[in-house]
Design a protein around this nucleic acid. Sequence first.
RNA 1: GGGGUCGUAGUUCAGUUGGUUAGAACGCAUGCCUGUCACGCAUGAGGUCGCGAGUUCGAGUCUCGUCGGCCCCGCCA
Length: 577
Amino acid sequence: MLKRTQYCGKVNEEYIGKTITVYGWVNRKRELGGLTFIDLRDREGIIQVVVNESFSDPKSIKKIGNEYVISATGKVIARSNPNPDIYTGKIELVAESIEILSVSEVPPFYPESNKDVSDELRFKYRYIDLRNQQMQENFRIRSRVAMVARNYLADRGFLEIETPILSKATPEGARDYLVPSRVYKGKVFALPQSPQLFKQMLMVSGFERYFQLAKCFRDEDLRADRQPEFTQIDIEMSFTEPEELFEIIEGMVKEIFALTGKTIQTGFRIMPYDEAMNDYGSDKPDLRIPYKIKDFTEEVKRFNSAILNGIIENNGKIKALVLPDAAQYSRKVLDDINNYIKEIGGKGAIWIKNTENGFKASIKAEASDIEAFYKDNNIAPDHIVFLIGEVPEKALFLAGKLRERLGASFMDKNRLEFLWVVDFPMFFYNEDEQRFDSNHHPFTSPNLDELDKLDTDPISVKSIAYDIVLNGIEIGGGSRRINDIELQRKVFQLLKFSDTEIEEKFGFFVNALRFGAPPHLGIALGLDRIVMLLTGGDSIREVIAFPKTTSSLCLLSGSPSEVADKQLDELGIQVKK
RNA sequence: GGGGUCGUAGUUCAGUUGGUUAGAACGCAUGCCUGUCACGCAUGAGGUCGCGAGUUCGAGUCUCGUCGGCCCCGCCA
């Protein structure tokens, strides 16, 4: 085999007159009788190879099919009719010899057309899908993001330290993936949901600044932005405050986004959780959408609507979304909106607008009252009002979902709206279990000024936790950790862990707090989501080489799969069917 | 666990009210073609209508179940 001279996609005018050898896949072949063009593709791009009368064995070209792997050797010449669309368009390679390195059956689809093919097929033949230029670019960017993160953090004194993949099951949080132990029958390892406790113990060990590109595993149902295994840029540091962490993360995010030529302004907006929920109905608001949720609980009383008044009397609130261009909301669109609210658990959305026949609403209301309502609340006559009446949290949730759904058409999709959401409640009440649950995780420090309220009014206590949000997607989250063993015990107790449970589940970690745990805090950023946003994709599957489907299957390898009884025997496992 | 949507040629899709031999485009094969770059022209091959039941004289079409893709709710400390 002749040595490769250059990538197909990198051959330009400087090579004119030189004899070179390139390797690649046949992207497309065009036969014109005695003249054949082969577009040869490698990871850098495509070069046109010409086979003309000077070629020794024209018949051998006939059998070369698309996606064959070949090498081509010959002289580079200037094209008489250049192709301005590609980098190599000014030149072509006149083949002197061509070697077939590997044949290909007719593929189920061609890499360049992977967008026109079902996801099912793309997953099954992922190795072909990944030949697509955009896919290649996605993984190039992913690699560079990882590199930038490593260099950036290393420059600031962070050490990359690996933590175990085979580890201990955690009692709350997501469902664990379990790995049975052969040596200790009936006992299992768990794959880490995150390296949380290990990184905290590295702080106890005195490393002060840790990071890791950590694989995490959570056995929960999937979404476009959720896979059972995913990668976090995991960070932990001692002897500092959140402000310094914010600065470090913002600087890193800035460098990461610079990779694709995007300039971002650091000093991200910081928004309390309560404000996010109140104004946007979400703890990860998409600030590209220029509308906030309004509260019209008082204002709608003038309609004397039995429905609305009934909701209000039952401690409900009337949350509202006011959007421009009421005319575009046809009967069908309004029905769709109403159905959407029902789908996500609401009773429906009430609309109010000005029509050719005057002010109208989907509830009974006097036109004059509606007109006065518009006037008093400074609502432009051509705007539509959606009302959602429910108990407050639900009303906000539903209005928030509606805001995201309807607001998308009013926003500049190219903007990057970063923000920190802070001051999360420490706990929320778990109705099913009749107890408090951690909002973040049980190692999160409560606001140190509110410790006295832990006993009297725990639900009101805020934690020192923070999420970083970009365009409505949570790209990371973290907190200050508890480094005081008594406070940690207290929080466990509030979460209704018995002493035995604490000892069994977290004993090893609580022990670490006994031997000089420094104040520390940290964060984890979702690498997959960041790369997805960077590459303009709408699913993290586009930036994970071998992803699972929505039902957690790997269509390429056929996993999960059954194993031989012998393997199960060795593990002391019997399978229920 | 729940809701929505989709599954027909290698691929993307069409397929009327249930009715003869299931179509198109691209791809593929063969032939022609010396400047193409989505080459062109001609000819041809290619179907378990996801799978299984049921209704019917007759099912791609209707019903039930099941498997799979995607989106969403729950879930995801």
